[in-house]
Write a protein that binds this DNA or RNA. Structure first.
Length: 359
DNA sequence: ATGTTC
C-alpha cells in the first residue's frame, strides 16, 4: 500500500515540527488511510500528531481519535453586561467546581466526573469581546458584544479513555472495518462518549454561570477529537476543529486572544474540512515547566500580559499551560485566513481563566 | 488526555 498524501497548512513551512511531521508520515502509511492533513497548530503528540485530520474510505482508527473522544470547545453568551463583571468577586465565588456536580447520578456513566473540567489543557474562561472584525455577520448572528462570554474546553474524561482502552485491548491499531460488527460497535461507543463530552461542557458552563448568578446561552459547541462520516468515508480529527459545522472558536492561550471564525467553503476540501483547534503547543509540558519555573514563581503566572487572571492551584500545571508554552495564535489564524479557510468574525479577550482549585 | 501519581 502506498503512502497517503500529506498536506500541511502552516504559517511558516520552515518551522513545522519535524517530530510531528514524522508522526504524520507514520499515520499516512496506515493501510486504509488515504489523505492526511496537518493544521497550523500541528504539534507532536503521544504517538499521533495533534492538529491533524485523517480520511479513510472504509476504516475506523480509534487511536487516531485518541482517548479524549468528543473533546471540544463550547462558547456561551451570558446575560451580564461585561462592564459589571468584577474579577475579584468572581474569583471569590468560583469554588466547589472541581468536585462532583450535585445533579450527577451516582450510577450514571462517568457520573462523578460529569460537570468537571479535568486537567491538562482543559479550562473554563470568562471573556469579553475585544474587537469585532465582521460587524454585519456578528450582528446577524444576534450576538451581543457588551455581554460577558464564557468559553469551556473539556472532553469525555475517563469515559473516552475507557473506550479507547477497550478497543486497544482488542488490537484496533490497524483499524476496524466501518461496516463490520466491531466498527459499528466502536462508533456507538464513540458517539456515546462524544455526547457525554457535549453534555459535560454544558453542565460546566451552567455551573460556572450559576456561581456568578448569571443566565447563559450556548452559542456554539464544536468537537475537535472525533470520527464522522465524510464524503463516503470516515474523517478522523485529532485536535482539529470542523469546518462544516458552523462557527468555530479558536482559543489562543490564557494570555492571548481567542478568535471567533466562520469557515469558508471554497478551499475547505484542501484541509479535509478541518481547522486549527487552538494555538498548538510550542514547548512540551516538561520543557515549559523546566524553562518557566526557573524564571518565574507560580504566583507570577496568576496574571497575564493581557491583564487576565488565572486560577490554577496546581503548581506544575500553571507552568505547563503558561502562554509562552503555546504558539502565536495570530500566526495560526493568519495561516488559516491565508489558505482561504476562514473569515475572522471577532476576537475575545480572556478575563479570568479557571483551571483547577484544590478541594 | 486520565476517578492519573512511584
Amino acid at each position: 500500500m502506498s503512502e497517503a498524501p500529506i498536506r500541511v497548512i502552516a504559517a511558516d513551512p520552515a518551522r513545522i515540527d519535524p517530530v510531528a511531521l514524522e508522526q504524520l508520515r507514520g499515520t499516512a502509511t496506515l493501510d486504509g488511510i488515504e489523505r492526511v492533513v496537518g493544521l497550523p497548530d500541528l504539534h507532536a503528540g503521544r504517538g499521533i500528531a495533534v492538529g491533524a485530520a485523517f480520511w479513510s474510505p472504509d476504516r475506523l482508527f480509534p487511536h487516531l481519535v485518541g482517548s479524549d473522544i468528543g473533546c471540544g470547545m463550547a462558547l456561551w453568551e451570558t446575560d451580564l453586561p461585561v462592564r459589571k463583571f468584577r474579577p475579584d468577586k468572581a474569583e471569590r465565588s468560583l469554588h466547589g467546581l472541581d468536585t462532583p456536580w450535585e445533579g450527577a447520578g451516582e450510577d450514571s456513566e462517568g457520573g462523578a466526573a460529569l460537570g468537571t473540567i479535568g486537567g491538562g489543557n482543559h479550562f473554563a474562561e470568562f471573556q469579553r469581546i475585544e474587537r469585532i472584525v465582521d460587524d454585519a455577520r456578528f450582528n446577524a448572528l444576534g450576538f451581543r458584544a457588551d455581554r460577558l462570554w464564557l468559553m469551556v474546553h473539556s472532553g469525555s474524561r475517563g469515559l473516552g479513555q475507557a473506550v479507547l482502552d477497550h478497543w486497544r485491548a482488542r488490537g484496533c491499531e490497524g483499524g476496524l472495518a466501518a461496516t463490520g460488527a466491531d466498527g459499528i460497535a466502536y462508533l456507538a461507543d464513540h458517539d456515546r462518549a462524544a455526547g457525554w463530552a457535549v453534555l459535560n461542557r454544558e453542565i460546566i458552563a451552567r455551573r460556572f454561570c450559576a456561581k456568578l448568578g448569571l443566565a447563559g446561552e450556548c452559542r456554539l459547541d464544536i468537537l475537535h477529537n472525533s470520527v464522522t462520516p465524510h464524503r463516503g468515508g470516515w474523517l478522523h480529527r485529532k485536535g482539529a476543529a470542523p469546518a462544516d459545522r458552523g462557527l468555530v472558536v479558536i482559543p489562543g492561550s490564557r494570555g492571548d486572544f481567542s478568535y471567533l471564525v466562520e469557515p469558508l467553503a471554497d478551499h475547505a476540501d484542501d484541509a479535509l474540512h478541518s481547522l486549527a483547534h487552538g494555538a498548538g503547543r510550542r514547548w512540551s509540558r516538561s520543557d515549559a515547566h523546566a524553562k518557566l519555573s526557573r524564571r518565574f514563581k507560580a504566583s507570577d503566572l496568576e496574571r497575564t500580559a493581557l491583564g487576565g487572571r488565572v486560577i490554577c492551584e496546581d503548581r506544575r500545571l500553571i507552568f505547563e499551560e503558561a502562554p509562552e508554552a503555546y504558539k502565536d495564535i495570530h500566526d495560526v489564524v493568519g495561516a488559516l485566513v491565508g489558505a482561504g479557510l476562514v473569515r475572522v468574525i471577532a476576537l475575545l479577550r480572556p478575563l479570568l481563566s479557571y483551571k483547577t482549585r484544590r478541594t
